[in-house]
């Protein structure tokens, strides 16, 4: 079995088992629910009632409405990705790789013929297919909800520029894929789902923020925070949607410029699968 054929076989097998895994759909549903609530529902309620939330504090009503209309959908698509979307996709990646050790399924998979390289590439490929699907579903949801807001507010429908949609889609894909790969790597590193999910969430939601705080006092720490995945993802999204001062969306940053943010995120997109592949190829599977 050539590596290409074996990778294709592994991809088909992984897609089947992921497609039928309720946990995958729960994670997708959770992300879509968060996007709906934080991207549209809270802001729309705020707009329609005139009240303010942490996300709308200081924002004018007209501006608030404009943010909810179709033209702004590409921004809403990605603004929750550096933190919440990324964290959820990291959980996804971690359970895809990590649970196989507890269930003994890696043991089964690795004795079926495809090499470890082909098996790893197949699993990462299936993960990527689901990330692409997640970003597409998110985009569709954002456009549908923004159309709904336009209809409710009797606003003219102005579609976003195709380039804006494509840019936003690309940024979202890079960010979510990076976190999913980080989860897959962690799940492989610790050979389990629970520990990798725990480590990953603490890192993404707590440690990176703390380090950025400490970095303002210690320059070596600050230099380190410039190359962390959260900084790269947050800055990439920050470049796209802007960072509106202290009340901007959590996780969206202006720490790095576009080139630097892209370099950081793309570095992780290359290094994480390589590291995971190296681990998979070299280690014993109990």
């Amino acid at each position: 079995m050539s590596t290409l054929i074996a990778t294709r076989a592994s991809l088909r097998a992984e897609l089947l088992r992921l497609r039928k895994w309720p946990a995958v759909w729960v994670i997708l549903a959770a992300w879509l629910l968060l996007t709906t609530l934080f991207g549209y529902v809270f802001d729309y309620v705020s707009y329609s009632t005139g009240s303010t939330t942490f996300a709308t504090d200081g924002v004018g009503r007209a501006l608030l409405l404009a943010d909810l209309l179709p033209a702004h959908a590409p921004h809403v698509l990605v603004q929750g990705m550096p933190m919440f979307g990324g964290a959820l996709m990291m959980v996804f990646g971690a359970i895809v790789a990590g649970n196989g050790y507890g269930w003994g399924t890696w043991k089964t998979v690795l004795t079926q013929g495809p090499s470890r390289t082909a098996t790893t590439l197949g699993s990462l490929g299936a993960l990527t297919v689901f990330i692409v699907g997640t970003v597409l579903a998110s985009l569709a949801l954002c456009l549908a909800l923004s159309l709904g807001v336009a209809g409710l507010g009797s606003q003219p429908v102005v579609w976003p520029a195709v380039t804006d949609v494509l840019t936003s889609f690309g940024v979202g894909l890079l960010v979510l894929e990076m976190w999913a790969l980080a989860g897959w790597f962690l799940g492989t590193l610790v050979r389990g789902a629970a520990l990798s999910v725990g480590f990953g969430l603490v890192w993404a939601l707590v440690l990176e923020n703390l380090l950025r705080g400490v970095g303002t006092l210690l320059s070596p720490v600050e230099a380190f925070t410039k190359i962390t995945p959260g900084t790269g993802a947050g800055s990439l999204v920050g470049w796209l949607v802007g960072t509106g001062g202290p009340d901007s969306t959590p996780g969206v940053l202006n720490e790095l410029g576009l080139a630097a943010a892209l370099a950081v995120v793309c570095s992780y997109l290359v290094l994480l699968p390589l590291a995971a592949l190296t681990l998979m190829r070299r280690r014993d599977v109990a």
């Binding site: 089947l16 088992r17 039928k20 269930w103 003994g104 890696w106 089964t108 079926q112 013929g113």
Partner: peptide
């Protein structure tokens, strides 16, 4: 045996079948 607990017996074997082409 090491199988995916959320899949049926048939689907587990279909996964294995796909790995084997």
């Amino acid at each position: 045996p090491g199988f995916f607990p959320y899949l049926s017996g048939r689907d587990n074997l279909r996964v294995v079948a796909r790995y084997r082409g």
